[in-house]
Design a protein around this nucleic acid. Structure first.
Lengths: 104, 104
DNA sequence: CCAATTGATAACTTATTGCATATCACAATA
DNA sequence: TATTGTGATATGCAATAAGTTATCAATTGG
């Protein structure tokens, strides 16, 4: 793995935790074993792009290709809103509407 | 591949073309065979995340996880600048500074 | 103290990537 | 017409992702 994908997987982990979901609960929601989520979040594996997209979407995140010159702008845009608005994860995601079983 | 990654690979293809590089020329620059680039750009393979990041960076693009609510904002930001500025790829990338051999 | 939850880790199997290499059809052009 | 550049495709092989299942240590709560 020439290029580390840690920043990306770290973001996935943060997003999951913000939703208050355990790896098992989240894994059940998206059909992925807990063992695998652990490996992904720790950066132990180089997951396929479609898998990244799938997991990200479940967490209300979208994988985008941003021209380098816009990266700082995008970062501050996202961060600012998060701070002044109690986090951009404030709104409940769809898949969580029917969550009686928060975990096993 | 549950989730298509075509929009992403299409973006890679567009970025490469904007730089006026053939698959062979670009492949040589990043150490990837032309046959593979073809498969990637056509969406025939589900490349690994680190590979996506690597290729994107060579094209001055960064893979980012953007909260869904910000996707439209980011899109318009990038698009607008591209239109009123002759494209955000106007600036020459680093790896192209020493390009005598534009292709094989 | 015991039970439940959480994340990390392991072993095994299967599916797919990714490289190397070669060929092909098509288009542009000398 | 012959040549050259382009992207699409094929085969074989090694590396690794991804699912299945199970266990473990460290919390945390009854």
């Amino acid at each position: 793995m020439k290029h580390s994908i840690q920043p990306l997987t770290d973001a996935l982990k943060s997003a999951r935790e913000k939703k208050g979901l355990s790896q098992r609960a989240f894994g059940r929601a998206i059909g992925v074993p807990q063992s695998r989520l652990s490996k992904i979040e720790s950066g132990a594996v180089d997951l396929r792009t479609s898998n990244l997209v799938e997991i990200a979407r479940t967490l209300d995140l979208e994988v985008m290709l941003v021209p380098r010159q816009f990266v700082p702008a995008v970062n501050s845009l996202v961060k600012q809103t998060a701070e002044t608005n109690g986090g951009y994860e404030a709104q409940r995601p769809l898949y969580q509407l029917n969550e009686e079983d928060d975990d096993a």
